[in-house]
C-alpha cells in the first residue's frame, strides 16, 4: 500500500514543476513568479517576439540537420561494421563509447578549441586562394557538426542492438530463394530495423533541440532556443518564457505520443 502512495507522490513530484510552468504561462500579470488569473497574452507576445522566433527557427533547423546526418552516418556505419573485421569493430566500439561517455561540456570545449584553431589555420589560406571569401566562423555548421557527433554514436548503439538481434534465418531464407543481397537487404532486413532507425532519429532530434551546453560553446553568435531561454532566465523568469516553454512541452508531448502510437500500431505490442 505504501508503495502505491509513494509512487503517486513521485509522479506528483515529476509533474508539479511542469504544471506550474504551464499555469504561469497563463499569467495576466507581468511578474514571472506571482500569478494572476488568466490571460493568453504571453503566447501572443512570445510568437511576435522576433528573437524567440529566430531562436526557434535555428533550433529546429539545427536539430533536423544534425539528426539527418547522425542517422545517415550512424546507420551506414552499423552496416559497414557488419562487413568489416574484428579489429575495425573494436576501434569503432571504443570511439562510440568515448563519444557517449565524455561529458557534453568537454565535447563542447574541445570542439570549440578545435574549430577555432582550424579556422585560424584555414582562413588566411582561403583568403589567399580566393580573395574576398567570407571567413569561416563559429555558427550553424559548427553546432550541427558537434551535435551530430554525439547523436551519431547514439544512433549507432540503438540501430546496432536491433541489427544484432535480427533473426538470421530470415535473411538466409531470402538468399535460399535466390534473392540478390541488395534485395534481401531492401525487403527483409530494412523493414525490420526501420523502427530502430526512426527511434534513433527522434532521439537525435530531441537531444539536439534540447541541448544547451554544447551549443553554448560552439554556437558563436548564433542563438538557439535553449541559449535564449538560459540567458533570459538569468535576467529573471518572465511569463513570456513560460509561454514558450509551455509550447515546447506541448510539442514534445505530441511528438512522444505520436511516436508511441506509431510504434504500438506497428508491432502490436508495447515497447518502451
Amino acid at each position: 500500500m505504501w508503495l502505491r502512495t509513494y509512487s503517486t507522490s513521485l509522479y506528483l513530484f515529476l509533474y508539479l514543476p511542469i504544471a506550474l510552468i504551464m499555469l504561469f504561462s497563463f499569467n495576466a500579470g507581468r511578474s514571472g513568479l506571482a500569478f494572476e488569473c488568466c490571460s493568453v497574452q504571453w503566447f501572443g507576445r512570445a510568437f511576435s517576439n522576433p528573437f524567440i522566433m529566430e531562436a526557434l527557427g535555428h533550433s529546429a533547423l539545427i536539430a533536423s540537420c544534425s539528426a539527418v546526418l547522425a542517422t545517415l552516418f550512424g546507420t551506414l556505419a552499423v552496416f559497414g561494421l557488419q562487413r568489416a573485421g574484428g579489429k575495425v569493430r573494436m576501434l569503432f566500439d571504443a570511439l562510440t563509447y568515448c563519444a557517449i561517455i565524455i561529458p557534453g561540456i568537454v565535447i563542447g570545449i574541445s570542439t570549440l578549441i578545435a574549430f577555432i584553431s582550424l579556422f585560424d589555420l584555414i582562413n588566411p589560406l582561403l583568403a589567399q586562394v580566393i580573395p574576398g571569401i567570407p571567413r569561416l566562423n563559429m555558427g550553424f555548421f559548427t553546432v550541427v557538426a558537434a551535435h551530430s557527433l554525439f547523436t551519431m554514436a547514439l544512433v549507432m548503439v540503438i540501430v546496432r542492438s536491433r541489427v544484432e538481434s535480427l533473426d538470421k534465418a530470415l535473411q538466409e531464407a531470402s538468399a535460399d530463394l535466390y534473392a540478390p543481397p541488395l534485395e534481401t537487404f531492401w525487403r527483409v532486413t530494412l523493414p525490420q530495423i526501420t523502427p530502430a532507425i526512426m527511434a534513433g532519429f527522434l532521439l537525435a532530434f530531441t537531444f539536439s533541440f534540447d541541448d544547451f551546453i554544447i551549443a553554448f560553446f560552439v554556437a558563436g553568435p548564433e542563438t538557439t532556443l535553449p541559449i535564449y531561454i538560459f540567458s533570459s532566465i538569468r535576467r529573471g523568469v518572465t511569463p513570456e518564457i513560460n509561454a514558450v516553454s509551455t509550447v515546447i512541452i506541448g510539442a514534445s508531448l505530441a511528438l512522444l505520443f505520436t511516436s508511441r502510437y506509431l510504434q504500438n500500431r506497428r508491432s502490436g505490442a508495447s515497447h518502451a
Binding site: 515529476l14 510552468i21 504561469f24 544547451f212 535553449p226 531561454i229 523568469v237 512522444l256 508511441r260
Partner: peptide, 20 residues
C-alpha cells in the same frame, strides 16, 4: 510513458521550474 515524458521535455525548462 508518464515517467519518460519529463525526460523528453527540455531539461533546461524542467530545471528552471524549480525556481518557482
Amino acid at each position: 510513458t508518464l515517467v519518460i515524458v519529463p525526460f523528453w521535455t527540455s531539461f533546461l525548462i524542467r530545471t528552471y521550474a524549480w525556481i518557482f
